[in-house]
């Protein structure tokens, strides 16, 4: 193993951070923030495969997060499904839905794709809000605790390790994928679609593939969130959440797996640090999005990495 590659070095750093982090978390308030960072980071690592690597925007991925959350909620409470089965059912459902949506929607480019995915997300959150009998409507619904082999998962500390492990696995899978022929095909779609297709890359296939994969990751993260939080509302599936996720990916750095984690961390912490921030949250996210696009187009992690490399050489 080469510990100096960004890949192994980054994985070890992340694992070390997750391991020692609890030493610096005095109470459950801090645990809560870090767990939310982890859940957002899982979604962002998936979304970054779509936006950062493949160059396809989605303004509706919170919808898939919401579907995962509500599958876990509804199947658990109304139909007494085991948590794992409900979570898997949600992921399969999102897989099918995102596949059906992806085929027509991924034909769109640029602004049209942004509009298409935006509409898709809005439809999902409207359905979750309107189907009040099942979903509790705009007020939301409670979710059963996560239960495996008869043991219920309770408490921030346990959830901390679960989310940490899932994040590590997601990051590992993402790094693997990017550094493979499939990953290069995805990046080639971002680089030049016409060159990619004439070199043998089935461009629509890869767009659909990564749209579905990122949607399924969002769904799984939504299920985890639902069980952890114990209560969900349609806001989880809403437009604002979608924008937050995109901003995290863009700020952290497009086409950087660790950038997605850093972006999620910063933008999850920021609203907690500044309580006044809450009223102006969307304004601040918009400002950060614009600022990043103007002053640091590649995002934090890639920009810092190349600065650091220039210092070394």
């Amino acid at each position: 193993m080469n510990f100096k590659t960004p890949r192994t070095g980054g994985m070890l750093t992340l694992a070390a951070l997750i391991t020692i982090m609890p030493l610096f978390l005095p109470n459950s308030f801090y645990y809560d923030i870090v767990i939310l960072i982890g859940i957002n980071a899982i979604v962002c690592v998936g979304l970054n495969l779509l936006i950062g690597y493949t160059g396809q925007i989605s303004l509706g991925h919170a919808g898939f997060f919401g579907i995962g959350a509500y599958f876990s909620g509804i199947l658990g409470i109304e139909y007494a499904w085991p948590a794992f089965a409900a979570m898997l059912a949600g992921a399969v459902f999102v897989g099918v839905i995102s596949f059906l949506v992806a085929r027509p929607i991924m034909k769109l480019k640029g602004h049209y794709l942004a509009m298409g995915t935006l509409g898709m997300g809005i439809i999902i959150s409207i359905i979750l809000t309107q189907e009040g009998d099942l979903t509790g409507g705009p007020d939301g619904m409670p979710v059963n605790p996560f239960t495996v082999f008869g043991f219920s998962v309770y408490g921030e500390k346990t959830w901390y390790w679960i989310v940490g492990a899932v994040l590590l696995i997601t990051v590992w899978l993402s790094l693997n994928l990017v550094d493979s022929p499939v990953g290069r095909a995805l990046r080639s779609v971002h680089g030049s679609e016409v060159a990619a297709e004439t070199l043998g890359v089935d461009v629509p296939h890869y767009k659909v593939l990564i749209f579905v994969a990122s949607a399924v990751i969002a769904s799984l993260a939504g299920s985890i969130y639902a069980h952890y939080a114990g209560f969900i509302t349609p806001e989880e599936a809403g437009f604002i959440h979608s924008i937050e996720l995109v901003t995290m990916v863009v700020l952290g750095g497009m086409a950087s797996t660790f950038g997605a984690v850093v972006g999620a961390a910063i933008l999850t912490i920021l609203p907690q640090l500044l309580t006044v921030f809450h009223d102006y949250e969307m304004l601040a996210f918009g400002a950060i999005l614009i600022g990043t696009m103007i002053f640091m187009r590649r995002g934090l992690v890639p920009t810092l990495a190349s600065l650091f490399q220039r210092k070394l050489s």
Binding site: P181, R184, R187, G191, A195, L199, G200, V201, A255
Partner: peptide
């Protein structure tokens, strides 16, 4: 129509997609 988001050698490796 270079893939400017990739290194020179990765550009060529995309050309090997069908044999990967």
């Amino acid at each position: 129509q270079i893939f400017f988001n990739m290194t020179a050698i990765d550009n060529i490796m995309v050309g090997m997609h069908l044999n990967s």
